[in-house]
């Protein structure tokens, strides 16, 4: 034991190191086997050449990728103006549903109906209905723009989800925190603003991150009502070239954004779980 320590490691650490090395070897060889299977066996499939030519066509990829990247800027722009609006609206709805003031009772009912409806309808339907429907009432330009109404559809839908998450966060704050705030003489509003909300928001950040990632992908639904963002641009290329590679290019661009974001959200969740235990 003593001379183990002299070598800088206890007996247990040496044993654990051995186990770890073995686990690493097993993991490495099984991973290699799986990748070998994918990269050797799939190309041996009879249809592989056709699939490769129509999904993984390097020539098409190089030709379309820069334009896809350019179209993706529109996705980012839509995302950037929707996300803050969703956060604010979602929070307001969550607060309205929490309110106990009888004067705000209609708000509470509306809030409940709102979240039920918008969470129950597929986003793409909402995009169509609001994106074509509202301008169809005869709004003049630029107020009938599909950018405005399509974004509003996204905002309304996502705010419904975000509101529910905020609400669950608010409810997860122990009720004695409200009592503690009230016992100090703080008003309901102050207690919500300074005591409940900061804790609630912190708790739901990982869940809201996941909503943002979902939103980032659903921005593409605006293409149904006209805006040429990356999904539509890829579709145009696909049609003109009768080749699906542009979709693969679009997927690559989406992944480049969503994978780091997803990893980060997972990291936040793991961190929060660690803190709680």
């Amino acid at each position: 034991m003593t001379h183990d320590k002299a070598a800088g490691k206890t007996r247990r650490q040496i044993h654990e190191d051995r186990l770890r090395r073995r686990a690493l070897r097993v993991a490495a060889s099984s991973t290699a086997a799986v990748f070998l299977a994918i990269f050797l066996l799939v190309p041996m499939a009879p249809g592989w050449d056709r699939v490769k030519a129509s999904f993984f066509n390097w020539e098409v990829f190089v030709k379309t990728f820069p334009k896809l990247l350019d179209a993706f800027k529109l996705d980012i722009a839509i995302f950037l103006w929707c996300a803050p609006a969703i956060t604010v609206l979602g929070l307001l709805i969550a607060l309205a549903r929490d309110t106990r003031n009888p004067a705000l009772f209609p708000l509470r009912i509306l809030g409940a109906a709102y979240t039920d409806i918008f969470r129950g309808v597929p986003v793409v339907l909402t995009v169509y209905l609001i994106g074509f429907g509202v301008p169809g009432l005869g709004l003049p330009r630029p107020w009938n723009s599909p950018y405005i109404w399509g974004s509003l559809a996204l905002i309304l839908t996502y705010a419904a989800y975000v509101a529910e998450i905020f609400r669950s966060g608010i409810e997860s704050v122990h009720k004695s925190q409200r009592a503690a705030a009230a016992s100090l003489g703080l008003s309901d509003g102050d207690s919500m603003r300074f005591v409940i909300l900061p804790q609630a928001i912190r708790r739901v950040i990982p869940a809201q991150m996941n909503m943002l990632i979902a939103l980032q992908k659903d921005v593409a639904l605006l293409s149904f009502i006209g805006p040429v963002e990356i999904f539509r641009q890829a579709g145009v290329f696909k049609s003109l070239m009768a080749n699906f590679t542009p979709y693969v290019g679009a997927a690559v661009i989406f992944l480049a954004v969503t994978i780091p974001a997803t990893r980060y959200a997972d990291y936040l969740i793991a961190k929060q779980n660690r803190e709680r235990s």
């Binding site: 009938n144 599909p146 293409s223 009502i225 006209g226 805006p227 040429v228 539509r232 003109l240």
Partner: peptide
């Protein structure tokens, strides 16, 4: 491509998934 190359509109055109959507956008004044 005909639109982009021959007319080259000054504002970005809006593109749709099928003819019905194009006409819906026209009816909505978009």
């Amino acid at each position: 491509p005909v639109l982009m190359e021959t007319i080259a509109p000054s504002s970005q055109p809006l593109l749709y998934g099928d003819n019905a959507d194009v006409t819906a956008a026209m009816q909505a004044g978009q």
